[in-house]
Computed example of a mutant assay.
Amino acid sequence: MEMRKRGRRWIYLFSVVLIAFWVALPFVCPNEAIAAPEKIRLSMGGASTGTWIYMYCALLSETWKRYIPNLDITVLATAGTTANYIPMNKGELDLAGASTSGDFYALNGKYFTKEKLTDFCSMMPATKGFNQAFTYLESPINSWKDMEGKRICLGARASPTSVIQQEICEALGIKPKFVFSTPQEATEMVKDRRVDGMIYGVGAPWSGIMDVATAVKIKLIPMTPEEQKKVNKAYPYQVPDVIPAKTYNFQTEDIPTCQGIQTINVRPGLSDDLVYRLVKVIWEHYDEVVKASPPAKWVKAADIVHMVAPIHPGAVKYYREIGIQIPDRLVWKKK
C-alpha cells in the first residue's frame, strides 16, 4: 500500500515538473519556441502563356522552390516581357522575364515607355535569339548588303523582332523592302516565292525555317565581321555570334550573325543574400534546367558579361565566386 502511494507521488511530482517546463519554455527561449521559418513570397512576371519565356519562368520557379526552403513564387502571365519593365520599376514585380533589347529600350525610354526606367537589374541569361536571315539556295543574295531593295519578310509590324531587324538594317545602311506579317504567313510567302527572303530573331533551330526547308531549298545569309561590329556598336544588346554548323540539316558551315539574349531580371530591392541563393541554385542545377527546357543550352553563366542592364550585387557575388570577371560598371549601384 505504501509502495503504491510513493509511486503515485512520484508520478504526480513528475507531471508537475513537466507541465512547469512547458509553461516556462517560451519565457526561457522565446525565439526558439515561438519563431517559425518566415515564408518568402515573390512575384514573377512571365509573358503570354504558351510562350517559351513564360514556361521557362515557371520552370525556374519550381526549381527554386525545390531547393530553397520556405520560398513561394507566383508566376504571372503578362502581355509580354516588355510589359514587365514598368511594374518592376514600380516595385510591383520581384522577378521577370526580360531581354537585353528590352533592357536597352527601357534604359533609354524607347518604344514601350516614355520615360527612362532604371529600377531593375539583370540576374541571369536565359537563352539566345539569333538574327536568322535566309533566302533561296539559287538566290544572288549572299550577304546582308545584298538584301538592299529586295522584298524581305519580317515579323508583324511593330513586334519586337521586326523592330530589331529594322534597327539592324539601319545600322548596316541597307534598305530592303520590308513585308510585315505573322511568322506563319511569312514562311508561306517564302515557300510560294512571293518574297526574296526573310529575317527573324528567334532561338535556333527555328521550326519556321525547318518547315520552309521541306518545301524549297534555302540557305542562311551570313554577316561579315565588319557588319557584326557595326551592329554591336549601334546597338550594344546585339552580340556577335555564330549559328553553329548543322544547326539545320541543310547548313554545313557556321553562320556569323548577331544575337540578343533573353534574360531574367530582378528588383534591386531584393536582398543580396536571396538573389545570391537564387542564382546559385539555378547554375548548380543547370543540367536539370536544360533537360527540361533545351533552348537554355545556348547560354552559360559567363554570358552574364553581355548584359545591358546593371547586374544585381547578390548575383555579382556568385558570378565572381566562380571566376567570372564582372567590371564594376556592370554592377548595380543604389541611386
Results as ranks from 00 to 15, higher is better:
Met1Tyr: 09
Glu2Ala: 12
Met3Gly: 14
Met3Asn: 15
Arg8Gly: 12
Ile11Lys: 08
Tyr12Lys: 11
Phe14Gln: 07
Phe14Trp: 06
Ala20Tyr: 11
Ala20Gly: 15
Val23Phe: 12
Ala24Val: 12
Ala33Phe: 10
Ala33Asp: 05
Ala36Tyr: 04
Lys39Tyr: 01
Ile40Tyr: 09
Ser43His: 03
Gly45Pro: 01
Trp52Asp: 15
Trp52Asn: 15
Ile53Ser: 05
Leu59Ala: 08
Ser61Trp: 00
Glu62Thr: 13
Thr63Ser: 12
Tyr67Gln: 03
Tyr67Lys: 04
Asn70Thr: 04
Asp72Trp: 01
Asp72Cys: 00
Ile73Asp: 00
Ile73Ala: 02
Leu76Gly: 10
Thr82His: 11
Asn84Trp: 01
Ile86Ser: 00
Leu93Gly: 03
Leu95Glu: 02
Ala96Ile: 08
Ser99Tyr: 03
Thr100Arg: 01
Tyr111Gly: 06
Phe112Trp: 11
Lys114Asp: 15
Glu115Asp: 15
Glu115Pro: 11
Leu117Thr: 05
Asp119Pro: 08
Met123Asp: 00
Pro125Asp: 01
Thr127Tyr: 13
Thr127Leu: 15
Gly129Ser: 04
Glu138Ile: 09
Glu138His: 12
Ser139Pro: 06
Trp144Asn: 03
Met147Tyr: 03
Glu148Asp: 09
Lys150Asp: 04
Ile152Val: 05
Gly155Ile: 02
Ala156Cys: 13
Ala156Asn: 15
Ala156Ile: 12
Pro160Ala: 14
Thr161His: 03
Ser162Glu: 03
Val163Gly: 02
Ala171Ser: 15
Ile174Met: 09
Lys175Ala: 11
Phe180Thr: 08
Ser181Pro: 12
Gln184Cys: 05
Ala186Gln: 06
Glu188Arg: 14
Glu188Cys: 05
Lys191Asn: 14
Val195Gly: 07
Val195Leu: 10
Val195Met: 11
Asp196Ala: 02
Gly197His: 08
Gly197Glu: 10
Tyr200Ala: 05
Gly203Thr: 10
Trp206Ile: 13
Asp211His: 13
Val212Cys: 09
Thr214Gly: 11
Ala215Ile: 12
Lys230His: 02
Tyr235Leu: 05
Ile243Phe: 08
Ile243Pro: 08
Thr247Asp: 09
Tyr248Pro: 00
Asn249His: 10
Phe250Asn: 04
Ile255Glu: 04
Gln259Leu: 11
Ile261Asn: 10
Asn265Ile: 10
Arg267Tyr: 14
Pro268Glu: 07
Gly269Gln: 12
Leu270Gln: 01
Ser271Leu: 13
Ser271Trp: 09
Asp272Trp: 13
Asp273Phe: 06
Leu274Val: 07
Lys280Ala: 01
Val281Ile: 10
Ile282Cys: 00
Lys297Val: 07
Lys297Pro: 01
Trp298Met: 08
Trp298Gln: 06
Ala301Glu: 07
Met307Glu: 07
Val308Ser: 03
Val308Phe: 04
His312Trp: 06
Pro313Glu: 02
Tyr318Lys: 02
Gln325Leu: 09
Asp328Tyr: 03
Leu330Lys: 07
Leu330Ile: 04
Val331Tyr: 01
